[in-house]
């Protein structure tokens, strides 16, 4: 395991594109959390309000809401984590170093295991940063403090890690099937932001579709991954929201993860490199 992680580290440690994407990812992560309060102030200045409550009254960083809120906001950056995987793998295919790794004595399983370990390590490090950001924000803005609050929301941080890991696995599979970074990045964006939501709307609301099929809308890959940590903000207008990370959502996300890994292995094994 150490050898495989070391191999991945050697590949990226002087790869500029990786560091640029990584910097963008963490700056965006920090910016999104810091910017969220500014955004609420902006909404207030624009006169936004709900039943006499102005947006700045939303306790974004209160313990223990902070974990769910920050985990949800941070998970929206998963696409950047996907871009990192796409850039690294497409670079290996373009320079034919993936092929050379096989010639040099890596098995396809080892290659894939290296990538999965790397994805896992990235997801855990990113989630540790998210935890730290949430902890600092909570410590500054929350009226209540204490160790019990620190551990309370850990499940959402782990849910965040699962989301990042699953999305990186999805990006890995797509890149191995079609190693053209430009096409894959645009395709992934179009699918995640436009196509899948449209398919979901179609499954939920089209008259000719049986009602049971609307359940499938939640099972689509990006939707299923997103549902591990769902939007927390409706609770501030007194609507019911997720209060814990549910096992059914985790299992569906893990199921997709398994399919992405199987797809990646099949692509590696079947294709000529």
């Amino acid at each position: 395991m150490g050898r495989l992680l070391r191999i991945e580290w050697l590949k990226v440690k002087s790869f500029k594109a990786f560091w640029v994407f990584l910097a963008i990812y963490f700056i965006a992560l920090l910016g999104m959390v810091i910017g969220s309060r500014s955004f609420l102030r902006f909404l207030k200045n624009q006169g936004a309000e709900y039943k006499g409550m102005d947006p700045t009254m939303i306790p974004l960083f209160d313990m223990s809401d902070v974990w769910h809120n920050v985990a949800y906001l941070s998970a929206s950056l998963k696409i950047l984590a996907g871009f990192i995987v796409i850039t690294i793998v497409a670079n290996e295919v373009r320079n034919r170093t993936l092929r050379q790794s096989i010639i040099d004595g890596m098995s396809y399983r080892e290659y894939l295991a290296g990538k999965l370990l790397w994805n896992l390590a990235f997801a855990l490090v990113a989630s540790a940063v998210v935890w730290l950001i949430a902890f600092v924000a909570g410590s500054i803005y929350s009226p209540v403090h204490g160790l019990s609050y620190v551990w309370e929301g850990l499940q959402f941080i782990l849910g965040h890690a699962l989301i990042i890991f699953c999305f990186m696995c999805m990006s890995l599979m797509i890149t191995l099937v079609l190693p053209r970074p430009g096409i894959v990045i645009i395709g992934l964006l179009v699918y995640s932001v436009i196509m899948e939501p449209l398919i979901a709307v179609f499954l939920r609301h089209y008259d000719g579709i049986p009602e049971a099929w609307s359940l499938l809308a939640d099972m689509l890959p990006v939707s299923a991954i997103n549902r591990v940590v769902q939007i927390p903000f409706p609770k501030y207008i007194l609507q019911e929201v997720q209060t814990y990370v549910g096992w059914p959502q985790v299992l569906v996300a893990l199921g997709w993860c398994g399919l992405f890994i199987l797809g990646s292995y099949t692509a590696l094994r079947r294709k000529d490199w």
Binding site: K11, F15, N95, R99
Partner: peptide, 10 residues
């Protein structure tokens, strides 16, 4: 087949 951005030694 090598990484162009890495040194010979790397």
């Amino acid at each position: 087949c090598f990484y162009p951005y890495m040194t010979g030694s790397q």
